[in-house]
């Protein structure tokens, strides 16, 4: 039976982590408590990190959008700082689980859980997200493209606390598409995020098609060249996907839907329909918000 730790400062957290055995971090708990209950994981301590002020900050600077580890999906959806240029992030936040769970589920928790089908992962990857992790040895920034190492595995050290997710300020059009078994709450059978920056940089990312989320960086493709390179892009995505058959979908279905969603994103970029609905210039000035 794990003990319960609830530090109110980072220093206290680091001290509590020192020599106390294995500690799991509790943000929203929507994955952790399920896994603990099932006995799928065990640990000596659970550390509730939500009372550490550094984790409760959302900050929009001239260069970055920073979302503290305690921010839930619903809080992200309600935050004016997360503008339409971050459409994949907003749409993934709205697609994760259900509204009830999104009151608890956090962006960082979803990232750290590192499930191949985690909704936030493809969205964060196409937006060039990274996480800032801290330990008593200091802070480091880890690009999410280098973060995931396997099913429910990541590069974090046991004593590292993720403070926030960081995205560069950006302009562009993007989306997050999720296929599931029912209209209601379900994990993704397959998901595709796409972001086409105004400078022509195209990134696509897929969930639930490999042991880790899959990022495809196509570099800069001028808009005029998109139609000609449509097939090449789609085939590249299809070739990279290596899904399995499980209780949610067959391998073939995942491949087919991964392809279909990729087509929809590329076609939406070509015909201009993607991003138009929410298209508005980012006028949000740099500012800071703290969770209530």
């Amino acid at each position: 039976m794990p003990g319960f730790l609830q530090p109110t400062t980072l220093e206290e957290a680091f001290a509590l982590l020192d020599g106390k055995g294995e500690t799991r971090f509790l943000a929203g708990g929507t994955d952790l408590l399920v896994l603990l209950r099932l006995g799928a994981i065990s640990c000596d301590n659970v550390m509730d990190v939500k009372r550490i002020p550094e984790l409760s900050t959302l900050r929009l600077t001239d260069e970055t959008l920073e979302i503290g580890a305690a921010w839930t999906c619903n809080q992200i959806l309600a935050a004016p700082e997360v503008g339409s240029e971050y459409a994949p992030l907003r749409q993934a936040s709205a697609a994760l689980a259900n509204s009830l769970l999104r009151n608890r589920a956090t962006l960082v928790g979803n990232i750290c859980n590192a499930s191949p089908g985690g909704d936030m992962l493809p969205a964060c990857l196409v937006l060039e997200g990274s996480v800032v992790a801290a330990s008593s040895r200091g802070e480091r920034t880890i690009a999410l493209k280098d973060f995931f190492t396997g099913v429910k595995k990541n590069v974090l050290k046991p004593d590292e606390i993720v403070l926030r997710t960081v995205f560069p300020r950006t302009q562009g059009r993007g989306t997050y598409l999720k296929k599931k078994r029912i209209h209601g709450h379900d994990l993704a059978q397959v998901s595709v995020a796409g972001f086409y920056a105004d400078d022509g940089h195209l990134r696509l990312a897929l969930g639930a098609v490999a042991i880790t989320p899959l990022l495809l960086d196509f570099g800069v493709i001028p808009a005029a060249e998109l139609p000609a390179r449509r097939t090449e892009i789609i085939e590249a995505v299809a070739a990279a996907a290596k899904p399995i058959t499980d209780v949610r979908a067959s391998r073939e279905y995942r491949l087919a839907m991964g392809r279909l969603f990729t087509e929809r994103i590329i076609d939406g970029l070509i015909d201009g329909s993607l991003g138009l609905a929410e298209d508005r210039p980012c006028t949000t000035p740099a500012r800071e918000a703290v969770t209530a």
């Binding site: 708990g29 509730d48 939500k50 009830l100 608890r104």
Partner: peptide, 29 residues
């Protein structure tokens, strides 16, 4: 269900509805 999948345990915690099966008691100080 004990796993946040059914909502039978919904309570309002600090103004927000949550699955109380996925909230640790000691979080609620």
């Amino acid at each position: 269900c004990g796993a946040g999948e059914c909502g039978a345990c919904t309570v309002i915690l600090n103004g927000k509805p949550v699955n109380s099966c996925l909230v640790m008691a000691l979080e609620c100080e």
